[in-house]
Simulated assay, not measured.
Amino acid sequence: MVDQMNKDVENVELENEEVNKDINKEVDEEVVEETSSELENEKASEEANQDEKKSKKDKKEKKKNKKDKKDEQIEDLTDRLKRQMAEFDNFRKRTEKEKAQMFDMGAKTILEKVLPIVDNFERGLSAVTEEEKDSAFADGMEKIYKQLVTELEKAGVKPIECVGEEFDPAKHNAVMQVESDEVEVGCVAQELLKGYTYKDEVLRHSMVAVAQ
């Protein structure tokens, strides 16, 4: 009887061990499944994050490339505008210079025709005698002459100083040589026809006699 009871107890323990093994096996399988599922979820999440990062990076690169292209277009247009402005400025300066040159050429042509009138005034005034200097006619001639000379000076016309100066072929036109005790050899002794400059350029050479 006792032996039978011991056998029954042993059988029950064996059954319990089998049940425990089955339970542990099921638990282990569940843990493995859960762990595998978690790993798969983590991997999927990591892949999703990587895809998102890649997508953001691609968008950023596209945006940067678009911005760089836009900046290049702006720089190109700015450079073209600067070149056109520089060309226009050069054109304006060149046009103004040409206009000034044309004006000076025209002014010289007119002034060259006016100078003989000035010469005639000077000859007429030098021919006035002492008795006639106080006459209304001589006084009127003197005033007209001074007014003419003043207007020429305002226009930039100046007489060339020559008597006593060293002969300069750029300003003087020597037509004769004379002996002189007043100036050194090679200097202008007499002024035969007054010369003039216009804006520091010779308008008419002085006709002179040079001391020898």
Rank of each mutant, 00 (worst) to 15 (best):
V2A: 14
E10L: 14
N11S: 07
E29V: 13
E29L: 11
E30D: 14
V32R: 15
E33R: 08
E33A: 07
T35H: 12
S36K: 11
S37W: 13
L39Y: 14
E42I: 15
K43I: 11
A44N: 09
A44S: 10
K53N: 10
K59G: 09
K60M: 04
K64P: 06
N65Y: 06
D68L: 05
T78M: 15
K82F: 11
R83Y: 12
M85D: 14
N90Y: 11
E96M: 11
E98A: 12
M102F: 10
T109S: 15
L111S: 02
K113I: 05
D119Q: 00
D119E: 06
D119V: 01
R123V: 10
E131G: 07
F137I: 13
M141Y: 02
Q147L: 08
V149M: 07
T150N: 09
E151W: 02
E151G: 08
V157M: 03
V163M: 04
V163H: 04
V163Y: 04
E165G: 02
H172R: 00
A174T: 01
V175Y: 02
V175H: 03
Q177H: 10
Q177Y: 11
Q177D: 09
E179T: 13
E179C: 09
D181V: 06
V183I: 05
V185M: 11
E191M: 07
G195Y: 02
Y198D: 00
V202S: 01
R204P: 00
R204F: 03
V208D: 01
